[in-house]
């Protein structure tokens, strides 16, 4: 993360400890994760002890402390999705990308995560890809989805994600 961007995020929020979560959310949105350097700077600028920044960042699932790939594939493994075969969908993602859940692929294109419920149990198994939701997934559909995402030029990645929205 460029220092300039962090400065603009912190603009008007310096020395305001209650702005901690908002600042962390902006950093998360901009870099996809929260780097250690950013946490040290935030701690200094907001006047919050580093321990507290670290506790908050590690507490919420919305914040990631490790770098995440360009495409984040989240498989729901809640009860309803589980009985409809979410395990096979997750295994497909893990096997095809050769990566453990919560990790990023070596080329930085994908990371695979699993959550306990997305709240769309009637549509299960559910997979979200960069925030857009895919219903009634099976290993075959996921393989095609990963294929299209992988062959997509990375520059326009974030602009075209709505095209897959169902």
């Amino acid at each position: 993360m460029t220092h300039f961007k962090l400065t603009s995020i912190l603009e008007g929020r310096r020395s305001q400890p209650h702005q901690l979560i908002e600042v962390l959310q902006d950093v998360q949105e901009h870099c996809g994760y929260i780097p250690e350097e950013a946490m040290r700077t935030i701690s200094k600028e907001l006047g919050v002890p580093l321990t507290e920044v670290y506790s908050v960042a590690s507490f919420y699932k919305a914040f990631s402390l490790k770098p995440r790939g360009k495409n984040v594939i989240t498989v729901c493994t809640g009860t309803a999705c589980h009985v409809r075969g979410a395990k096979m969908v997750l295994n497909q993602a893990i096997g095809q990308l050769n990566v453990a859940p919560g990790e990023m692929t070596e080329d930085g294109l994908f990371s695979v995560e699993h959550v306990n419920c997305l709240g769309a149990c009637a549509l299960g198994p559910v997979v979200t890809e960069n925030g857009s939701c895919h219903h009634h997934m099976n290993p075959g559909k996921l393989r095609k989805l990963i294929g299209t995402l992988g062959s997509r030029p990375t520059e326009e990645g974030s602009y075209e994600k709505n095209q897959y929205h169902q």
């Binding site: 002890p49 580093l50 321990t51 507290e52 506790s55 590690s58």
Partner: peptide, 20 residues
Amino acid sequence: GVKAIGFVGRGNERRVETPF
């Protein structure tokens, strides 16, 4: 009043730790 250690993580991963 120094806050050198704190709780980190949530649920069954909660632990007392120094930052990083």
